[in-house]
């Protein structure tokens, strides 16, 4: 299944991209998607604990299952205001 994965702020700098298309096997979780991308972008791994996850513009957890066509986002700690 096809996923769109978004990186924001410092995470986009680390990966050098703000968006990747990913082909994932069925029944994977957001945590598994992160692991796949951390293998491709090893500099992501140290940020694992501080990263927040979103699925289709809603906060999600590493256990959240993903579905075909989902937009997954990795968010560093927010700093608006």
């Amino acid at each position: 299944m096809a996923l769109r994965v978004l990186f924001f702020a410092s995470l986009a700098d680390i990966t050098g991209t703000s968006e990747v298309e990913l082909e994932a096997s069925p029944n994977v979780t957001i945590g598994a998607v992160f692991a796949t991308l951390a293998a491709r972008f090893p500099l992501l791994e140290p940020h694992r604990k501080s990263i927040l996850f979103a699925r289709n513009s809603r906060y999600a957890t590493p256990d959240t299952p993903v579905q075909d066509g989902d937009e997954i986002a990795f968010l560093p700690p927010v700093s608006g205001g």
Binding site: A9, D13, S50, V78, S79, G80
Partner: peptide, 21 residues
């Protein structure tokens, strides 16, 4: 400041840093 996905980057004379909240 704690929940809305907005980030700021500070620009100085020499360099710039993402602020993480």
């Amino acid at each position: 400041k704690s929940a809305v996905p907005i980030w700021k980057k500070e620009f100085y004379e020499n360099g710039a840093v993402w602020v993480e909240g």
